[in-house]
Design a protein around this nucleic acid. Structure first.
Lengths: 213, 213
DNA sequence: CATCTTAGTGTCGCACGCACACCATGGCAA
DNA sequence: TTGCCATGGTGTGCGTGCGACACTAAGATG
């Protein structure tokens, strides 16, 4: 699964199946593992082939092994999910002619196979993980405003957060680096841009720091 | 992996390999998935076959897919872990003559294949999960004392906890049911036995309750 | 220059987490 | 029977972090 943040909304990329079974239905991108590659490598290769994305966050989710998942034959799927932002990474449609599109998580079509279940598992994982691991930053451009960050967390957690408390907390963690750049081209007061300070985050984790939002 | 609590220590069950490769080395129990069973079913069947355990907590952990994990051929392993207590469930050695034994997590031999890595992943998961999901109770007998519960958490989290604060917190959650039974056959004041109140825990979760220790 | 939109900032009360020490109980041995 | 020993069981006070809450600042636009 590829999750992306499109200014306002959290979206997932689906591709439309060209052949049977489930012809015309939307499905999660995927493919088969080759004998000479690890699962991680296979996931990265498929991601690249179907979306052109490289060097994004990618993590194994869960392995689905129901017997009749695929009506043709027994298939076991090791699901992975990736996070990216749609600004820095232009996502190209898959090269093999099948249609690809971003879908808002609240407006999903019926999916092929057991992909509804897989997607649901991924959203739960994302929702659980985003609170105590700073993976949310993967969805934002490298430089972002605090308001963007807050909107992101509001989307994922599905509830409103208080602006002052949010800023206070996230700044107090000391994992954001203030840049001297400001937002450009907005029709109101420009906000300051921040950067996620990964090295100092990692240093702090080693000393027992616990990210939590 | 099968984790068990043996009064004092958290242990894992290993079996000694009878044949090549890694003959004589200790390894995690496991086996192959059959065409007519799901992954969960396969995990349960193997667990039963190798330890006689039924109806215990069992959960998928992670899928390991490095290329040369098994020197013979490409094998992808979907790892599961189970929790049980060694009092209520008598664990019998595997029927197929291979030796089985419990090992303290701090005194492990070198394991076959990449089983060290798998086990390490499981311990991390257990350590992370035990704090916000009440799976710790799976390792205790159905009725247990608060001190037993505390010892368990101290083992898993690997640090000392304050008795008064621990009791206060865990009792305040309202997920423990006080029984009218007392500990038997101890050479000091007997402690009261408690039971994990799963129905009321589930009810509370539905209303937004968050277990956390 | 008025208006509009978002940026950015501080306080206070409360609840929770943590540190901390003593009496109760019951078995056992002298 | 009595003393001893080991563990069970209990409350308070302090500090910190969390959540609720509203107004001024800046910059673009017409």
């Amino acid at each position: 699964m590829v999750f992306g943040l499109d200014d306002a909304d959290l979206k997932v990329m689906l591709i439309q199946r060209a052949g049977a079974p489930f012809e015309g239905r939307w499905a999660l991108p995927g493919g088969f593992v080759r004998p000479d590659e690890t699962l991680d490598e296979a996931a990265r290769r498929e991601l690249d082939e179907e979306t052109g994305l490289k060097r994004v966050f990618l993590e194994q989710l869960y392995t689905f092994g129901a017997i009749k998942r695929d009506p043709r034959e027994r298939v076991i799927s090791v699901a992975y999910y990736a996070l990216c932002n749609l600004r820095d990474h232009k996502v190209q449609a898959a090269t093999d002619a099948s249609a690809a599109a971003w879908f808002d998580l609240h407006k999903l079509p019926a999916l092929a196979f057991d992909h509804d279940e897989i997607l649901k598992t991924a959203v739960e994982r994302l929702r659980g993980k985003v609170r105590y691991v700073p993976i949310g930053f993967e969805l934002l451009p490298r430089k972002f405003t605090l308001t963007q960050l807050q909107r992101l967390y509001e989307k994922i957690l599905d509830r409103q957060l208080d602006k002052r408390n949010f800023r206070k907390k996230v700044l107090a963690m000391g994992i954001l680096e203030e840049t001297d750049e400001m937002q450009q081209g907005v029709a109101h007061r420009a906000a300051r841009l921040y950067r996620f300070d990964e090295p100092s985050y990692k240093r702090m984790v080693k000393q027992g720091f616990n990210f939590e939002l």
